[in-house]
């Protein structure tokens, strides 16, 4: 049995949004300590790694390790049905073939408001364990959701069942690495740089020197350069730019992938870039005290 309740369900919504353009299918690996996802894009150029620690949930139970294979597009469709203020509970049986997702609105008063209406409403085909007189079940009829699962509404509690699948994903062992350069900067600023640079070309060079971090692109239209300097004493934490450098590093990357990574911008005010010569960059978005989403991107290298 696996059960985990996240008061801030928005995190889960944003996480799936942040990986569904990169990864079609992946496993959610559940253990005592955390839920994690590791998956590569189809062409194995990039890798995404998610970790949400069990301590970040307000309820967490995982009796034995589970791998829940899911389709990211379908999960994204279901999570779109959760409000930004909703708490989300994930539930799975040890040998089940579906993941149950329960969305609860913040306004519990609505339960009373809808009581009479619901009793008189259509059918009362109650799911197991629910309060029979207070719920009803609707098969998915929305065109976009046909066949994805079943929706059960209990007033302001919605229960969705996502069909799970067996996924043979190739898991890469990523060693802990001391990187030569660590840059922390506002995630919104990073997103803007990536968006603007894409106008000019498809390859971005990131160069870190004593001067600061230089983002550069060369294309048919012309060239673009943005220099970010250390600003460790900005008034707000999230405005700070901090650069730790052991030695200068310059690497080049496909902007297409960096652009996918910036879909995680809403998860936090800060992004951390880790670089060493001739190895993948790590683009990390910390998620409060709960965990992180990290993207790894293989560089372009002279052979």
């Amino acid at each position: 049995m696996f059960e985990a309740r996240l008061t801030s369900g928005k995190i889960l919504k944003q996480l799936i949004e942040a990986l569904k353009d990169l990864v079609q299918e992946a496993n959610i690996d559940c253990s005592d300590d955390e839920i994690s996802i590791q998956a590569m894009d189809n062409s194995h150029v990039s890798l995404v790694a998610v970790s949400l620690r069990s301590g970040g949930f307000d309820h967490f139970r995982c009796d034995r390790p589970l791998s829940l294979g899911f389709n990211a597009t379908n999960m994204g469709k279901i999570l779109k049905c959760a409000g930004n203020e909703d708490a989300i509970t994930l539930k799975a049986e040890d040998d089940g073939d579906s993941l149950s997702m329960v969305f609860e609105g913040p306004n519990q008063d609505r339960i009373a408001d809808f009581g009479e209406f619901a009793r008189g409403a259509r059918g009362s085909d109650s799911p197991p364990g629910s309060r029979r007189e207070k719920c009803w079940k609707i098969d998915f009829n929305f065109a976009t959701m046909r066949g994805v699962g079943v929706l059960v509404v209990i007033f302001d509690r919605k229960i969705y069942e996502l069909k799970l699948m067996d996924i043979d994903s190739e898991q890469l062992g990523i060693p802990d690495t001391d990187y030569k350069v660590t840059i922390q900067m506002p995630s919104g600023e990073f997103q803007r740089i990536i968006r603007d640079m894409q106008v000019l070309g498809d390859t971005l060079s990131i160069s870190c020197t004593k001067e600061g971090v230089k983002f550069g692109v060369q294309g048919d239209l012309g060239t673009g350069n943005v220099l970010i300097r250390q600003n460790a004493h900005a008034e707000k934490d999230e405005d700070r730019v901090m650069i730790e450098m052991e030695e200068p590093v310059e690497l080049t990357f496909a902007l297409r992938y960096l652009n996918f990574f910036t879909k995680a911008t809403n998860l936090g005010p800060t992004v951390i870039l880790n670089m060493s010569p001739d190895v993948p960059i790590v683009v990390e978005y910390p998620i409060g005290e709960t965990g992180h989403i990290k993207y790894y991107l293989a560089p372009k290298i002279d052979e």
Binding site: V45, Q171, L172, V279, A298, P299, K300, I301, D302, E303
Partner: peptide, 14 residues
């Protein structure tokens, strides 16, 4: 033009 590397070139399978 520099060729694009793949993740498998850097990390091995678990």
């Amino acid at each position: 033009k520099k060729p694009q590397m793949r993740m498998d070139s850097f990390f091995s399978l678990k």
